[in-house]
Nucleic acid binder design. Structure first.
Lengths: 256, 256
DNA sequence: AACAGCAAGTGGTCTATACCGGTCTATACG
DNA sequence: CGTATAGACCGGTATAGACCACTTGCTGTT
């Protein structure tokens, strides 16, 4: 591990470097991922790290707390700080769109736009997006493909008032999440999802190119931005034979 | 909101009270849940809270950071700290067993033990539980019912070496998670799950009392304790028409 | 040989203080 | 009238030091 080399800020500095605690997080994460610490091996104590990085113990603790929270390390009072078991899939808990998901699995994502229009919201969708009844929403229905194979039918609803110019984009070529972030400055931070297994109906079977009876996964997803404002409400139908949903659960702290 | 009344520790104190930051978390959570702060309303600034609770600003920040991390509040540099939108289901992310799940929904859970024995682990299960090949595991297959209706078939595998006396319990009457916690002191903190939609096979259809073709949700779950040690590996099949899987996703910090 | 007790080390909590950059507003200037 | 700008206030970062409860190993006694 590199113990020196933290980027100390100077008066003449032009661009702000990462905070010290983030540099420590990155350094320790790199060391652990590179195998320089084995799982369940003890890390140097907080006081030792504070000495080695030449920062205060509180700054070291800030870094270690974040690492513990994301599950990279764990602590035991009186004993020390230890490297956790590597996760089966570290990034399962993160919030990603279809494009990222498929790319991360090493496949080539593609989309076919089946419908794109502005329509009055159904009561269910207006309630989910916290819009007045009958408010206009942008509705975008896409067939999602992975390496050319149909994987899902996805219908996204967004408030028209907030994303009026959205349909000017060609979502066969662009990622919706990328447009939301780059053009509208929307930071998606949280989503509530509901998954359900069902038997596909005739339309779904045809679009997904499966022969009945075929199992599908129906997904409902409400995504909100960093201010807690609902941004999109998605109804998806995934092929059951090609889609596995992986994720991690953490126990709530203090008896939630 | 109650600004006074933090439990200040004294020398003669017998039982340790919650840490100050936890008392502040509880107090603010109570105030927010009671509606004394509206969503998107600004909370007092950190310096004001520090004055009102008579603690240092760092202690207030410790409380606010935890609240922000669990999504109760959000912060904006230069503007303040604000109450977030209430979650659709705050406790979705927590780690619970079937008994808790069903009870939380206001239904009556029940179990019928279909098989309980000690068997050599299959290669897949030995790898998941990080046991040597052919190591012995406790295998417990249960039919899970909610208000008398069959909901799932669940097969749990646990390392025999660690839980040798487990099968002395009657798991038609006792919750596995309760036994693990009370008798073995195991704190389950983390699980990796995989969900998949499928068409139920003949055996499943009969046990779950559905007529084919019926959709089912297959679930695979690896639960680990606080030290990162795998504790149980579960294969479940849920009725698709009666089981919806709800959960929350959070965006990873710093571009995970 | 067995045990009680102490001391050292560990993470957990808390204080008091300082400075930074982002945000907003009132005031003075053109 | 519009626009800079100064200052107040905000959360974010970082310091140095203190005390606590818990764990472990050593040590002296029984």
């Amino acid at each position: 591990m590199v113990y020196t080399g933290l980027y100390v800020s100077m008066e003449l500095q032009r661009e702000a470097p990462d905070p010290l605690y983030q540099q420590i997080i990155d350094d320790l994460t790199t060391a652990i991922e590179a195998g320089r610490f084995e799982p369940h091996q003890r890390l140097p104590s907080e006081r030792e790290l504070s000495e080695q990085y030449q920062v205060s113990r509180m700054t070291v603790r800030h870094a270690l707390l974040d690492l513990a929270r994301e599950g990279t390390i764990y602590t035991r009072v009186g004993k020390g700080t230890f490297v956790a078991e590597p996760k089966i899939d570290q990034q399962l808990r993160t919030l990603t769109g279809f494009t990222q998901d498929v790319t991360a699995r090493g496949s080539r994502p593609a989309s076919r736009v089946l419908a794109a229009s502005v329509v009055p919201a159904t009561p269910e969708i207006a309630a989910a997006l916290r819009l007045p009844p009958q408010a206009e929403v942008v509705r975008l229905t896409r067939l999602r493909l992975s390496d050319g194979v149909p994987l899902a039918v996805e219908t996204t609803h967004l408030p028209f008032a907030r994303f009026a110019g959205l349909l000017a984009h060609d979502f066969a070529a662009e990622s919706l999440y990328a447009v939301l972030e780059d053009e509208y400055g929307v930071a998606l931070t949280h989503a509530e999802q509901v998954l359900e297994a069902a038997v596909g109906d005739a339309g779904e079977n045809e679009l997904l190119e499966v022969t009945p009876p075929a199992a599908v996964m129906r997904m409902q997803r409400l995504t909100v931005d960093s201010a807690g404002e609902p941004v999109e409400f998605v109804l998806s139908t995934y092929r059951g034979d090609r889609y596995k949903f992986r994720f991690a659960l953490q126990a709530g702290s203090r008896g939630v």
